[in-house]
């Protein structure tokens, strides 16, 4: 459940932003989460609810944009999309895939309310 400590850190970051950017409430948070980022979407939702409690982000909408896993086949060289790290190359069916994308775990933007 490392999702909780990651989102607690995110809420801290948002609180710092609130001080410098002058907002007092967060209405929506948009995250980008790669399929191979090692973070579970449902766990992130649960963790967000827990971490935002009694903060300026309590009750905010959490939108999670899922990004596909990407890689290059070590055997046939094709660029492919994969669901899991251990997927064999869907193009040739035998090659191991080196991951090139889908490990993102980012806060994209937040919608806020307040003078600023």
């Amino acid at each position: 459940m490392h999702e909780l400590s990651i989102l607690e850190g995110m809420i801290q970051g948002i609180q710092e932003e609130a001080r410098t950017q002058g907002f007092h409430r967060v209405l929506q948070v948009r995250l980008e989460v790669g399929r191979l980022a090692g973070a579970d979407v449902e766990a992130l939702r649960f963790a967000f609810e827990a971490a935002s409690q009694d903060t300026l982000a309590e009750g905010a909408l959490l939108e999670i944009i899922e990004l596909p896993g990407k890689g290059v086949c070590r055997t046939c060289g094709h660029e492919v999309e994969i669901e899991q790290r251990f997927d064999l190359c869907p193009a040739c069916g035998v090659g191991f895939v080196s991951v090139t994308g889908g490990t993102e775990l980012r806060i994209k933007d937040i919608d806020v309310e307040g003078e600023g």
């Binding site: 970051g13 209405l27 775990l105 980012r106 806060i107 994209k108 919608d111 806020v112 309310e113 003078e115």
Partner: peptide, 18 residues
């Protein structure tokens, strides 16, 4: 009333601090 709803772009890795 929505007092100045606006979007703040962050584009930060959630593990950036670590």
């Amino acid at each position: 009333a929505r007092i100045g709803r606006r979007r703040v772009s962050l584009e930060q890795n959630l593990l950036a601090k670590n």
